[in-house]
Design a protein around this nucleic acid. Sequence first.
DNA 1: CACGCGACTTAGAACTTAGGTC
DNA 2: GACCTAAGTTCTAAGTCGCGTG
Length: 708
Amino acid sequence: KDKHKEKEHKHKDHKKDKEREKIKHSNSPTRQFSVVSLNFRFLISLQICRLTVRPRERSPVAIKSEPEDDNGFYPSPKHNKATKRERDDDEEFEYKPKKVKVEHDKKAKKRKHEYEDDEEDEHKKKTKDKKATEGKKAKKQEEEKWKWWEEERYTDGSKWRFLEHKGPVFAPPYEPLPDKVKFYYDGKPMKLSAPAEEVATFFAKMLDHEYTTKDIFRKNFYKDWRKEMTSEEKSVITDLNKCDFREMSEYFKAQSEARKQMSKEEKQKIKEENERILQEYGFCIMDNHKERIGNFRIEPPGLFRGRGDHPKMGMLKRRIRPEDIIINCSKDSKQPKPPPGTKWKEVRHDNKVTWLVSWTENIQGSIKYIMLNPSSRIKGEKDWQKYETARRLKKCVDRLRAQYRDDWKSKEMRIRQRAVALYFIDKLALRAGNEKEEGETADTVGCCSLRVEHIKLYPKMDEQEYVVEFDFLGKDSIRYYNKIPVEKRVFKNLQLFLENKQPEDDLFDRLNTSILNKHLQELMDGLTAKVFRTYNASITLQQQLKELTSPEDSIPAKILSYNRANRAVAILCNHQRAPPKTFEKSMQNLQTKIDEKQKQLSAARKQLKAAKADHKASHDEKSKKAVEVKRKAVQRIEEQLMKLQVQATDREENKQIALGTSKLNYLDPRISVAWCKKWDVPIEKIYNKTQREKFAWAIDMAEKDYEF
DNA sequence: CACGCGACTTAGAACTTAGGTC
DNA sequence: GACCTAAGTTCTAAGTCGCGTG
């Protein structure tokens, strides 16, 4: 079946091919952004607009598109690398430890000791002079911020030597409804048994959600609900449509209202209790360092709501009991105790993994874990390593690109498919696309699992030749919609792949992620499909920052540039969000503020003019001062106005783009740190507290000349 | 090689809180 | 001091990818 006809024409320009030409489309193509001052080259060329609609908002309305030229968006791989290199550049994983193990242990012991002290303090102090203790504590913590990145890593595949924790926090037990809150069946009140009632409350709590009206949701819910019913209940309740949960729903609404109305003291009390639980369960000791745990609370029972069109939506997610829990800790640690009268499923001591607690979830049968916070050593090291791998890809990406271009001509079908898929992954930052079990999850795809129905080929479209239109649901059922011109060879290959296939057939029938990743592994150690996403995201940020930052810009303007660079990446990776519910309103509010500010400004200018005239007439000191005062006022207001305008632009551009995901997962933080240092932008403007904790390693080590 | 499983990263939405405004 | 919004935090679903097994 590997028939390959096709005479190749000379391609004129390789460089050009690498250049990204993305056509974005908009559902309301007429909409334009209100563009305010400053350097908008980027925005204008990129034309940030709505990419897709969420599936639930999806309408069969035709999607229009606007062609766009955006030269300079795609990261042209430059090799004008500065001569200076970081200490960790070059070899394999270049983690050069500054300290050796022995020292580490010593320091660690001291650390543990202090940790225990801390705990004791916590309990005794309470009433004592708070300020003094807090001050002391803060200082102490400051002094001993542990720089794990200066230490050696384990090379034997083990993740830790010592691990001690208190186990998970379970969901609070079910509290039956007060008798006055009734459930009605077929118009008649009906008292439910506790288990049936609990599951009913899950449904009641979701009543306002659209998905409780969906057939699949209702069917799944009803089926699982019946399993919790007594036999009498089962015989009475035979039709979900006759069930009236409204009173229950109202009750919960009132409850949450009441919670909001609680007095300060009550709220404070709850806060303190949460803090106590956090202190007790929210930390563990791993290799003698106290580390924050990410999710120490077990997921409470409820109704499963997958994203998109999920076949299992509405199913009962059952309550997790101690008997379901596997504890992982070190042998020589104090083992966590199960709640009185219960037992753990298992306690194991596996230092080849990083999790502390696990259980099997009943919807998909997958395993859930309790792991450490992103600020922990174990997560940080991995994160760092990820960016180092991406940087190694940078060094050989030209070679790889040349190779896959070459493979487009291969006489083997599987190689051509592999090469075209890789091209998409590289150019469009698509995900790998593992195959999924049909009917178990929402129907979403990535690159390798693309089907014929997901692409359309246009030999000619407007001015452009060889345009491919992508339209599919990706991870989280977020729609990916894009039209891009591709090289003739890619286009011809796609035509070939499509031959004699049905819409629901795989586009790449000779390819899957395993084959692809095996191939990538051969090209570069540690290379997998997702490294391309990391690489392209980070290199785009770096390149965009270079392009957008003007030295003479104010700090807010620089931050806008940063956000735009960030946005370019988010668009590349198709990170979208639903426009905030209050978006229009908040935009209006901001506009009102801007209008006011403008009025203020013209008033201030008038006053300045008057003062100047006054000074001209009198030439005395007093009037001179008055002019200065007014001048200052005008300047101040101008700045304020500028800030507001920048804010408005930023917000508008960001309407349905989510920056967080790329910032947290794809952008080498050292690029941002270096940028901040270079332009004297406080790091706090870019990373909030949590993010600074996660990226502490980068903040500590990156200098202003860091190059990704 | 197909398959399922296990571990871990990536993801957007829901919820909560802080800080500004009236 | 109440209220409102934006920012920050939490939640947990949904991916990726490697490994063992048959």
